[in-house]
Amino acid sequence: MQASTTPPGATYPRAVLFDLLTALLDSSTVWNAAAGSEEKGRAWRAEYLRLTYGCGAYVPYEQLVKEAARNAGMADSAPDALEAQWDTLPVWDGARELLLALQPHCKLAVVTNCSRQLGHRAAARLGIGWDAVVTSEEAGFYKPDPRPYRAALDQLGVQAEDAAFIAGSGYDMFGTSVVGLRTYWHNRVGLALPQGAPPPELQGATLAPALPWLRTFASAQTL
Score class of each variant (00 low, 15 high):
L108F: 01
R50S: 14
V16H: 07
A139K: 08
E97G: 05
A152G: 15
V134T: 11
A139S: 14
T222L: 10
W213G: 01
F18C: 05
S177H: 08
A132H: 04
Y184G: 09
T183Y: 02
V111F: 01
A69M: 05
F165D: 12
K107R: 09
R125Q: 09
G41T: 04
A197G: 11
R14L: 08
A122P: 12
R121E: 10
A23V: 06
E97N: 00
A151D: 13
L100H: 14
R188Q: 10
S169N: 13
P8A: 13
G190L: 05
A46W: 00
P104Q: 05
L191Q: 13
T88M: 02
W213L: 13
T5P: 07
L17N: 02
Y61E: 14
S219C: 14
A23E: 08
G180P: 07
L108K: 08
R150V: 08
Q117N: 11
D80V: 04
N32M: 07
C55L: 06
A34E: 00
L100I: 05
G140P: 12
T88C: 10
M173A: 11
S77F: 03
T112G: 10
V133I: 14
G204M: 03
K107W: 02
L49I: 00
W92N: 12
T5L: 10
T222C: 05
G180E: 10
L99F: 01
R116M: 12
N113H: 03
A192K: 04
L193Y: 01
G94D: 11
P104G: 03
T5A: 13
A72S: 15
Y184V: 07
E201C: 05
P60W: 06
W213E: 08
A152R: 11
I128K: 08
G41H: 04
A205S: 14
R182C: 06
A205R: 11
Y48Q: 15
Y61G: 06
